[in-house]
Amino acid sequence: MRTRDVNKENSIREKAIEMIVKEGLDGFSMQKLAKAAAVSPATLYIYYKDRDDLITQIATEISNRLMESSLKGMHPKMSFADGMALQWKNRMEFFFKHPLDIEFIEQIRYTPTYDSIKKSIRQNFGDVLGKFVHNAINRGELTPLPFEVYWAIAFAPLYQLIKFHNQGETPASQHFTISDEIVDQTLQLVLKALRP
């Protein structure tokens, strides 16, 4: 009889992420994955109902981990500056530790699969980050803004720096490596922009 095996499950997941990041969703099939993970296609169907289920489960697992790690140490009553510094640190850590996971999420971001995990992301946002932002506004540390404007200013600069780092070059320079000074300089400007 076939039984679940956690190690096997993890190695299947790793292989799937690797394949989808490298070859894209279109070229991905259960049979190819089975071969790459050295299991039978039958084994894959013990863990996953079908191809969509596999992609959804993996994406959900990654986004839960990303959310959890970006909220690590966060408290709704933290000062806005401290909370932002912590968020930036947490997010950067995840991006550098799990680059493939991030690329995987980017691959599926515009597919129907992603719709199903959006709900759980929204829920988490409201619970912790919503309160954090709300408190900061009430204390006069943050300008009230539409969510999209807030988000674009608060996090897009960090993501752009990470992108430059991953590319290893920028329009102005052939070599770029992210550093604490650069991140802090950017963060201070972001905080300044968001202050009332």
Partner: peptide, 11 residues
């Protein structure tokens, strides 16, 4: 039935 995979696997 896995409708999005090439083998049309019935599970």
């Amino acid at each position: 039935v896995d409708q999005h995979d090439i083998d049309n696997v019935l599970r």
